[in-house]
Design a protein around this nucleic acid. Structure first.
Length: 429
RNA sequence: GGCAGGUUGCCCGAGUGGCCAAAGGGAUCUGACUGUAAAUCAGACGGCUCAGCCUACGCAGGUUCGAACCCUGCACCUGCCA
């Protein structure tokens, strides 16, 4: 699970490594930070709010960045937002729906265990998990307003982009206050653990610098901030949160196979960037991959490597290998009929296979729905009408086509495909 | 509290009594071309027992042969005034 430290330890300063990987979008006084880091291990933190039962690859970038800093000898504090998760960070789309305290507490536990898998918890610079509920639960409103609120000029708060964009559509006092809580986190971690750096996504920059400011005003100390860029696709839209939904890290929410697929479909124009930002391959190794990729993009070597690295990192080597084998079987050049039954069955189990009953005489439309490739029978019929439905890589044009006889491999299996990249299986028995 | 405007399908947005499952755009899906890439072009895009039926235009009720469109009440949002 943990990348080999020898491979990952940069020979250069870790800040230069992050920079070269395209992981620094914004930073406070870089030279001062560099000097502090060179003088000895520093303590830094990154926070995750429990807005779902699992983290996604946007959060993963933050975890991996924290891991890079840890590998360089610094000490991470991983904060899970037990209290901030109850409030909700304002986002442009509009007011968040509030989750119950029980739900948030459950998500906190899940996310804490998820996040701790990516860092070392032991050793001289072992990571510490913290929960901001610890210092907000007993905090009185009066103390909060006097000690924290006093440092926040409302005119400056109103000027922040997220807030000003919400002034028209409306924003609750609850969300408006969020930045005070995150800032308080930084102050608390600075006081309790000597934390002098907060990292996060560039969308958090406003919240992060507000914390820097609070520490300066309250304690007179200069602390730092570093933000990673928003990871985008070639068209500028957010990577990893699109058509089929969010790319989750939890295997129950997204199978390792699906996770692998989401990476292998990376765009040519972006795949090398992703390799730099997400993997622990050295920049030299990535240069080599990039050269091959530029030479023969059709081989999709960069995408394969990216998918393998990421699936290994998140789900482990065994799952990664299984996902790779499944992809090779289902997307390979070879005939599906040439696959041994065990290979075929394994591949379909990875991709996901639905059970159908032969006596029901299931049709292609039934199979598309049962496998989850389409949301409804209407959509399935449409797919067939569009010429986008395949059984064992052969186009099916009749929506009433029953899956039986020659359409079943080993008298049992059928590989159902919708379009080019969506494959699933059915087992008819 | 008063006045004005608004609430339409995944999102934006047109529609003010029948020709509306609802223009247009975006997103998404599929096809062609390909390399599980991009770009381009084309088609699709509420559901179902699919030449028909059902559900839908904030919620509830009403007028009408017929309502997303008219009326009443309610909820929420925005602006102006107190």
């Amino acid at each position: 699970m943990h990348p080999d430290p020898r491979k990952a330890t940069p020979v250069t300063h870790v800040l230069d490594d992050l920079d070269a990987r395209g992981l620094i979008a914004h930073s406070t006084d870089r030279d001062a930070l560099r000097a502090e880091m060179s003088a000895g291990p520093i303590t830094y933190y990154v926070g995750f709010d429990p807005t779902a039962p699992s983290l996604h690859i946007g959060n993963l970038l933050q975890i991996l960045t924290a891991r890079r800093l840890q590998l360089a000898g610094h000490r991470p504090l991983l904060l899970v937002g037990g209290s901030t998760g109850l409030i909700g960070d304002p986002k442009e789309a509009g007011e968040r729906i509030m989750n119950t305290k029980e739900t948030v507490a459950d998500w906190v536990a899940r996310i804490a265990s998820q996040v701790s898998r990516f860092v070392d918890l032991d050793g001289p610079n072992g990571a510490t998990l913290v929960n901001n509920l610890d210092w907000t639960e007993g905090l009185s409103t009066i103390d909060f307003l006097r000690d924290i609120g006093k440092h926040f000029p409302v005119n400056r708060m109103l000027a922040r982009d997220v807030v000003s964009s919400r002034l028209e559509s409306g924003i609750s006092y609850t969300e408006f206050s969020y930045v005070l809580l995150q800032s308080l986190d930084y102050l608390e971690l600075h006081r309790r653990h000597g934390c002098v750096l907060q990292t996060g996504g560039s969308d958090q920059w406003g919240n992060i610098t507000a914390g820097v400011e609070l520490v300066r005003r309250s304690d007179g100390h200069k602390v730092h901030a570093l933000a990673t860029p928003l990871i985008t696709k070639a068209d500028g839209t957010k990577f990893g949160k699109t058509e089929s939904g969010t790319v989750w890290l939890d295997a129950d929410l997204m199978s390792p196979y699906a996770f692998y697929q989401s990476w292998i479909q990376a765009e040519d124009a972006k795949v090398v960037e992703y390799l730099r930002q997400f993997t622990f391959l050295t920049l030299d190794e990535i240069s080599t991959i990039e050269a091959e990729h530029t030479e023969k993009p059709g081989l999709r070597g960069a995408q394969r490597r990216l998918a393998a690295e990421m699936t290994t990192l998140v789900h482990g080597a065994d799952e990664a290998a299984a996902a790779e084998l499944a992809a090779a079987a289902l997307f390979g050049r070879g005939e599906l009929t040439d696959l041994p039954e065990a290979t075929l069955a394994a591949a379909l189990r990875e991709a996901g296979a639905a059970d159908l009953t032969a006596a029901d005489r299931p049709t292609i439309v039934d199979a598309l729905v049962a496998s989850g490739l389409t949301d409804s029978k209407s959509a399935a019929r449409r797919a067939v009408a569009d010429g986008g439905a395949y059984v064992n890589n052969l186009r099916v044009s009749d929506p009433d086509q029953v899956l039986e006889g020659d359409l079943l491999l080993y008298n049992t299996w059928a590989v159902i495909r919708k379009g080019k990249r969506s494959v699933s299986g059915v087992r008819v028995s």
